[in-house]
Design a protein around this nucleic acid. Structure first.
Lengths: 162, 162
DNA sequence: ATCAAATCGTTGCATTTGCATCGATGTATA
DNA sequence: TATACATCGATGCAAATGCAACGATTTGAT
């Protein structure tokens, strides 16, 4: 027991297993889900994950500002701004000025954008069904875990960033 | 009902809610977990998430090759290689040649690396405890959901990539 | 033994990302 | 009203990333 501290830590640390570490496990599953999903709609529609999130949000809210999306979708505003630029170039969404507040920019799907979402969303729904099948009876428990973590971590995050 | 298809899709899509989409929800929670964790060990130890994963894997396996880490940790090998370079520069890990197979490179923690992990791992353990507290009784159900998704998606991923 | 194919780790390169900053607009205070 | 401050979205820039090579080494087939 006269060994140095860094040697003693070598044995202590054996208790820690990355495979049981929830942040790591969640990150891997999130990545696998993203990859599986992205493979479908990137190959068929040429859109990235940021693109996808913006499009879905706009289809759900029927239009929103960059700030709206940023708050709801947990993405950097620069990422959203650039995704919006790509989508505008492709004619999928439109930028219009907000009348009451000149700082805000109203993003909304064009007819072409709606048409694409008409193909895209059923694909997402089918993917969700597949996930539910995988999770089986544990589906609700898994979702409730996500909800708890989200709520708790988001409040502590906002707190830290003040 | 004589409206065009893209208009009809506008109402159909109202059923889809990003907030209920498991890939999205999982991605956000993973990001929040990463941010919360990274804030602790980036500020205190100056290491990134790829650095962290490499270090933890090396502490668990007591040394490994890039290929080993790649398979176990679901990270690109170039990402691992660059993380390793950073960690070597900082004196936290060492690169040694594998005797039996000259292609493999054996990565292992230096004494200094072990010393850092001696501080780092308790921090991770505490974080895991906090997560378990948040999840409460639903902890096991959440973890089992992660396990199922991981298993299923990884096999289908390998399948697709052939 | 020889030569082709596979594996491992690194690196070049184009793209993406995060952060800080900027200009433009709106709000609040004196 | 005049002036300081806050907010919104875009952009410059450095760093990180993913992918496709590449050289070095090993394996397998003939």
């Amino acid at each position: 027991m006269a060994a140095s501290d860094n040697q003693s830590s070598k044995s202590d640390n054996a208790a820690f297993e990355l495979a049981n570490f929830t942040p790591y496990r969640t990150a891997v599953v999130a990545q696998l889900l993203s990859e599986a999903l992205a493979r479908e709609y990137r190959d068929r529609f040429g859109i990235s994950i940021p693109d996808w999130r913006v499009l879905v949000h706009l289809s759900a809210e029927n239009g929103a500002s960059v700030r709206d999306i940023e708050q709801k979708v947990v993405m950097e505003k620069s990422k959203i701004s650039r995704a919006a630029s790509r989508l505008v170039t492709r004619g999928l969404i439109a930028r219009t000025k907000n009348e009451t507040d000149g700082r805000l920019i109203h993003l909304s799907l064009t007819d072409q954008g709606w048409a694409m979402m008409g193909e895209l969303l059923p694909l997402a729904t089918a993917f969700q069904k597949r996930i539910d099948t995988i999770l089986g009876a544990g589906s609700e428990a898994y979702e409730s875990g996500l909800t708890r973590l989200w709520q708790e971590l988001e409040t502590s995050r906002d707190f830290d960033q003040d």
